[in-house]
């Protein structure tokens, strides 16, 4: 019940975003104009961002707005219905290889940049984890595991989200300029954008198919969260001479994002033909409604002032690292799409 006002706010902002998308499309149709199709996701984020950073979000709404993480995960589980195992297998090997390269690259690059610029080592670890796996949940998971400060964690989250917001505008423009296919673009967005909501949004801004591949690459990255966080936890535990208690398997299971299991289960059921075509469309629509709430929440949670307060060095390191990763993954994907005609 405490969450109700905030939920209504998410729904109102998200729905306004949907109306804006439809309004622009029907205006263009009526006047025979070719207007760019800007999806509801970006409008929802934009409206949320403006509201949060002008009038602010009153306390009564906060509990409901904080549920956006649930809607994100729910939306992703539903999205499983659009991934038939055949598609996954087709993409599997190549995408997995790319994910491995991206992980190694981001961790090495961020650690080196942080050391080189004399950044606090725990913040460096958080930025490395955030940029290699998945912005927010990885940072939250890692924060507990390596005992980092709240300020470091919120800065790392803010930096990852801000860079992701920038990529929402930059990525589709670059994709269109290079004439990338839906498949190639989605793969790139899933590899280079760090927040799951923003990676999905970047894909969705390009096309429905691109969103599909973005989520696929992104969920593969997300699935490695346990291993990377475990590695960092062991590193920092050893460094602070603290005894690491409990079994490693239990630790991995604890940190493993469970919604990935739901996603796989729904995808498996759809592959086996459990749902009719109409039922699959219904489930896919449920995922759109869940994302509508998610993206309104992402906008509302982005605090521009908070970001400015923390100084620019970590953001600069984050930005340099992210640009380099985006560039290298773009080269990989474009190269692969030439070679294998993605």
């Amino acid at each position: 019940m405490k969450a109700l006002p905030g939920l209504l706010l998410l729904a109102a902002i998200g729905y306004l975003g949907k109306l804006t998308e439809q309004g622009i499309a029907s205006y263009g149709k009526a006047h025979h104009l070719h207007l760019p199709n800007i999806e509801y996701v970006l409008w929802a984020i934009l409206y949320g961002l403006i509201l949060a950073n002008t009038v602010g979000v009153p306390r009564v709404f906060r509990a409901g707005v904080a549920t956006y993480e649930f809607w994100l995960k729910l939306g992703i589980v539903f999205l499983g219905v659009r991934f038939l195992l055949g598609d996954v297998l087709k993409l599997g090997g190549l995408s997995l290889g790319f994910v491995a390269v991206e992980l190694a690259l981001s961790i090495l690059l961020m650690s080196w940049l942080g050391k080189w610029m004399g950044l606090n080592p725990k913040l460096t670890s958080l930025l490395a984890i955030g940029s290699s796996i998945c912005g927010v949940s990885a940072i939250i998971a890692a924060k507990g595991a390596i005992d980092a400060d709240d300020e470091d964690a919120s800065y790392a989250i803010a930096a990852i989200l801000a860079l992701g917001a920038f990529s929402l505008f930059a990525f589709p423009a670059i994709g269109h300029a290079l004439g990338m296919s839906d498949h190639a673009f989605g793969l790139w967005a899933g590899l280079a954008v760090d927040n799951t909501a923003e990676a999905t949004a970047a894909g969705a801004l390009y096309s429905d198919t691109a969103a599909k591949f973005a989520v696929l690459a992104k969920t593969t990255r997300n699935a490695t969260i346990g291993f990377v966080v475990l590695g960092y936890a062991l590193y920092w535990a050893r460094k602070s001479q603290k005894e690491f208690s409990g079994s490693r398997v239990a630790f991995l299971w604890n940190k493993f994002p469970k919604f990935v299991l739901g996603f796989l289960l729904i995808s498996f059921a759809a592959t086996l033909g459990v749902f009719t075509k109409a039922q699959m469309a219904d489930i896919a629509n449920l995922s759109r409604w869940a994302f509508l709430l998610t993206f309104a929440g992402v906008g509302l949670q982005t605090n521009i002032r908070e970001l400015r307060k923390q100084g620019l060095k970590p953001l600069a390191i984050g930005a340099i690292g992210e640009f380099a990763i985006a560039g290298i993954t773009l080269a990989m994907v474009v190269g692969a799409s030439r070679a294998f005609e993605l």
């Binding site: 993480e69 649930f70 995960k73 729910l74 992703i76 589980v77 539903f78 219905v81 994002p257 469970k258 919604f259 299991l261 739901g262 289960l265 729904i266 059921a269 459990v274 749902f275 109409a278 039922q279 219904d282 489930i283 629509n285 449920l286 759109r288 409604w289």
Partner: peptide, 30 residues
């Protein structure tokens, strides 16, 4: 036992999928 957001998202989604499968939830428009 308190379930995490992750588990709730899985339970909710699977529940909704079952309801759709057996025609209990009506058609969902977009």
């Amino acid at each position: 036992m308190k379930l995490s957001v992750d588990w709730w998202s899985v339970i909710t989604a699977l529940g909704a999928a079952v309801l759709i499968k057996f025609g209990i939830l009506p058609h969902i428009p977009w």
